[in-house]
Amino acid sequence: MDLQTNPYRKMIAMTVSSILKEANFDTTEKEVLGTLTEMLQAFICEIGLLTKNYCELSGRSEPLIADVILGFVDMGFDFSSLEAYVKSGKHTILPALQPQQPQKQLNMLSAGKKQTLPSHIPAHFPQFPDPHAYVRTPTHKQPIIDYESVREKAAAQKKDVEKALTKFLAKTSATHNLFDTEEGNIFPLIALKPPYPPYLSALLPQDQIFDPEDLDSDPKSLIMQQQKEHKEAQNAREEKLEEPMEEDEQPLNDTIKSEDNAQSNAFIDNPYLAATKMPSKDIIDVC
């Protein structure tokens, strides 16, 4: 098996055979051929290895003929007759090594047309695989983003969530029945538990969550502020035309006002905010 599969070994075997033919052998036993092939292979390997070592020893990466000679010397092999042998010229020339035929892909497995390699990639690089290996094929529908269906979907989702929640709650707590019979009550009403205090849950609703901004929003002050800004802008425009003196006054007034506000906020004279007094002697007497 090895003999057939490995092209080098095959070549060596052929070489051994041709040498044997030169030496006028007609036939050889398979085992002998195998042994000789093995010996030749070992010899070539050894010589190659030594050559490489000598080459590297002398700091090169490519061996010279000298390295080969050194290798022969090192092995103790007399190679003087080699030249004569080569020059005798009666050797059969081995056929060139046949490039191995790539295994033919079966038609049924190829999908689509293979892409050719782009110019910047050297031709020796492997070919592209079949397109199906890298082309993304959409496997789901594109989302529909028109208004109507988005609303539809949002509505359905909301309803489902609500339904699931109420169903769960209805199953986990006591219910009222709108009908006389108990069976098949598909419209259970959750019995209510009185909250205490009753007004808290009613006045602080939880059905929606609002931005704190909305909860604090003061439409009137917003409008006022806008008006004020508008006025200020106008004033600024007007004042630009007038003398610079007045321009100074305006911000001054403002600062005074804001200070006033700040002060009043800091100290509010309201009896309910005052501290509770300690009992005085008189009051103890009265008590």
Binding site: L165, L169, A170, F187, P188, L189, I190, P205, D207
Partner: peptide, 17 residues
């Protein structure tokens, strides 16, 4: 169905008043 769902929902998420 609509009424029961809303009424039940109010138990968990009450609205104003």
């Amino acid at each position: 169905e609509e009424i029961t769902r809303l009424l039940n929902l109010e138990k968990a998420l009450p609205c104003y008043k």
